[in-house]
Design a protein around this nucleic acid. Structure first.
Lengths: 106, 106
DNA sequence: TATAAGTGCAATTATCCGGTTTCGCAATTT
DNA sequence: AAATTGCGAAACCGGATAATTGCACTTATA
């Protein structure tokens, strides 16, 4: 029943996106994270589990606390997927640029 | 009716991501798109409906055919969301860069 | 040692999602 | 006019999801 998750599914949930942003700069415990949302600690824990399955977070155990932090490098996968589209919209921008240049010549 | 969808949910499904890539450069009909997948035309139609709800595709009616094309600009929304993380990983790269520079000084 | 705090896991439930099948409608072809 | 083609909508189904609740385990504190 361990479903194969990927990073795109991970960021589909708005709460998960908020968590990702929250722990991007500094590690946080599940309890501390849960305080930022209108949901239970267990629900946050589940989200963290999903993020961990996608290797999007790292865990640092300190006594009975567990500090979660975003593995920022993993986010580059989204960036890489976007690359194909970025090429297109940049090309179109260039074309528009050239068109404007031609119009100015006349 | 369901205004509950956003672009992140749209790209969560792998088939939808493939459709997006397929119609990024040129408009295609549902039938033509469906030929690229191991699924029915109706299923593709459902995906296109979801993409349309997110304003990710444009429709051009030609007789009884409907040509769908990706609204590439909408993809920039993902890019904008990534911006916050791009800053972080670029900063870390800079730090690493400076660290390497210092090490070479000695 | 007894209690409290921090956490993960299991069971439950209501909802959502993606697919198929069937159907109806409009545009084209014969 | 009749048959075909292209399409979306509705009904349905099995599996996935997200949230809650209850519990068990470990670590810290009284």
């Amino acid at each position: 029943m361990e479903m194969r998750r990927d990073i795109f599914q991970a960021i589909a949930d708005p709460t998960r996106r908020a968590i990702i942003a929250l722990i991007a700069l500094q590690a946080m415990t599940p309890n501390a994270i849960a305080e930022h949302f209108d949901t239970s600690r267990q629900a946050v824990s589940k989200h963290l589990r999903i993020l961990a399955e996608c290797e999007l977070v790292s865990q640092a155990h300190k006594g009975r606390e567990i500090h979660y932090q975003l593995k920022i490098d993993k986010m580059k996968e989204i960036d890489q997927w976007l690359e194909q589209f970025r090429k297109i919209w940049e090309d179109r921008f260039d074309n528009l640029d050239q068109l404007l240049a031609k119009m100015q010549e006349k």
